[in-house]
Amino acid sequence: MKSAVVLLPGLNRDRDMIAALTKISGQAPVTIWETDTQIPDVNLIVIPGGFSYGDYLRCGAIAARMPVMRAVAEKAAKGVRVMGVCNGFQILLESGLLPGALMRNASLKFVCREVKLEVANANTAFTRGYRPSQIIRCPVAHHDGNFFADPETLKRIEGEGQVVFRYADGTNPNGSLNDIAGVINAEGNVLGLMPHPENLIEAAHGGTDGRALFEGVLGAAA
């Protein structure tokens, strides 16, 4: 099972992501830089969190137009699994690989806390390690995680099971429509989520609820 992590200036969760992927797959991911136009053969490409290009213009907007993202889109079109976490989610939305947009948190505040997540669709390559409707713990840390989509798009993604994670038990930290925390594309191989499952994979983190996500997608891609 091979994975790759996209590196962009301003990302700061790349090390956590690399550590999680290495620990769970037993193999260090290859790293890809912003100007790379070729991505080696891997089963999973991950875009980690942070503040690419200082969040200039809109979060993820500049990163989404870098050469590496064209290469990611080509791989995604061929069925390679792609996961974006936090800023990575924003980048996938800005690049048009996922539906919707992420806006400034309704509170206008940066939120850094633990939330509860409901696995709204456990029948994906990423979430098959969870039970349907399972509630898990997960940390969030973001300023722009307020998910928005026009009514038509919202209806479509809800109807098609593309909402994969939802903030549960009143823990919506940002005002997201329908408590949406993570969505998947119609083809089922591109997932974006605001929370940080890579920060809850071993006992030293205070919990392992994020582990099944990595085990699921790494196992599924093996």
Binding site: L57, R58, A61, R65, L93, E94, G100, A101, M103, F148, A149, D150
Partner: peptide, 9 residues
């Protein structure tokens, strides 16, 4: 269309 605006919002 390509950069300055996000036409979703």
């Amino acid at each position: 269309d390509k950069l300055l605006a996000n036409t979703v919002i």
